[in-house]
Design a protein around this nucleic acid. Sequence first.
RNA 1: GCAGCUGUAGCUCAGUUGGUUAGAGCGCCGGAUUGUGGAUCCGGAGGUCGUAGGUUCGACCCCUACCAGCUGUACCA
Length: 502
Amino acid sequence: MSGKAKADKLKARLPRGFVDREAAEIRATERMLQKVREIFERYGFDPVETPMIEYTDALGKFLPDQDRPNEGVFSFTDDDEQWLSLRYDLTAPLARHVAENFDSLPKPYRSYRAGWVFRNEKPGPGRFRQFMQFDADTVGAPTPAADAEMCMMMADTLDALGLEGQYVVRVNNRKVLDGVMEAIGLAGAEHAGTRLVVLRAVDKLDRLGLDGVRALLGEGRKDDSGDFTKGAGLGPDEVETVLSFVGAKGAAASETIETLKGLVSESSIGSAGVEELAEIARLVGAAGYEGKVEVDPSVVRGLEYYTGPVYEAELTFEVTNDKGQVVRFGSVAGGGRYDGLVGRFKGQDVPSTGFSIGVSRLLSALKATGKVNLSDENGPVIVTVMDRAAVADYQAMVSELRKAGVRAELFLGNPKQFGKQLQYADRRNAPLAIIQGSDERAEGVVQIKDLIEGKRLSEDIEDNAEWRAARPAQVTVPRTDLVEAVIKILAEQAADREGAGQ
RNA sequence: GCAGCUGUAGCUCAGUUGGUUAGAGCGCCGGAUUGUGGAUCCGGAGGUCGUAGGUUCGACCCCUACCAGCUGUACCA
């Protein structure tokens, strides 16, 4: 059976930037998503799912002036030569879905979905080429109340995950930033490129600090490796105007809003943005979310398609990882208003607002705070095989347990060495093992071994032979009482976990 | 993409100025124990030293290119 020469052997390897997920991770994710879903449902949102593949033009990702999609998206051609792409977020496909079914959907239309998205970019720690997002969007609601609701829903979701007091939802408005751009002479299509550079510079505030952003707004910035990043090329006065906007956050929302008003008083679009922010602040305040949702002009978000309020949930705590480095999780969810995205299909703007949760990043934050149960104490009851001739009897036990709703399995490996069977049960995190040899069968009984209790006892053992003879944490029950006894012991184990503060 | 650092067993790492057959710990598999998880003891499998060239009598070690990983930076629609 050693057929293939080594040279021909295929190397088992995962493509860069992708990961396999195993039981504990999948279960933890499911538990987390379930909590998120409950909150979204409570807010009146309905689930809707779209496929992972869309026509590339629907995603809006053709390179400008070229017959080829952006390199950042995984793309291929259909048999009719049309470009298809794997979705890179959940917002563009939703816009397509809404546009395609516009007349039959109730407006405003509230929906949510969780799904995998793909980006063909350089992976890094915590950054993959396939990852999961959880989105909620309201389409067809122009009122800032819809944006305020999104911010509150983000807060409620994080509270439900046990992160109360460890995050802040920060909200700003693109229109205010546009007003600032106007004030420094960057209005108009000819300055679109510069505006984008300014946007990205401001977006880096948390990482580079005020001085880094100042450099990026001006001539440019040289980083530690000696690499130079070209800046926006603003003059000193303009730079300070932008920075005063970014740093406009005051002790209270009203204070922040007064400062912003002064900064954009000359600009009608800027003033409109401030009005919207004031309205959002009023709504979240009235609903009792002060402290959880704050107006903060330093939030800009990198995406170009936002047209009004933008918001971001940031975790405020730090954690030391196993390498002893301090890790900040930063933003775990973000979104904003995108009035133009559905409109690409409709010929007129459709006011929409929504946000996206980075599922993996949020989960690793929950792991770091111990807010998620990662231990896999979900193993099956293992029915061991003492003698092969009785396999039918053992299988009958398994079957009875399963019918009673107990997760159970027959040991299917080589039963020659009994110790291996318990070793297997141990590895599977089995709570119990069922043992019936010829002695037990003759008496019409079975042994139920409590592997969790036994593990605890094993910490004190010194002599192997003695321990074996003692058969710790093991009870004998009549064969007919098997199911009843198993259920009882499992319930006791569960109560123990509960009591231990688990 | 750019820059720096790093590639030796499944994992963490040794490996002398360039010198015979490349090592350890952990893990894995088998046995001591044909009816009991841990510990212990014994045995075993597992390597084209990232890949390909070059220098040399001789390369894990030196040189070049490529590939991959890490860190920073850029991009992230």
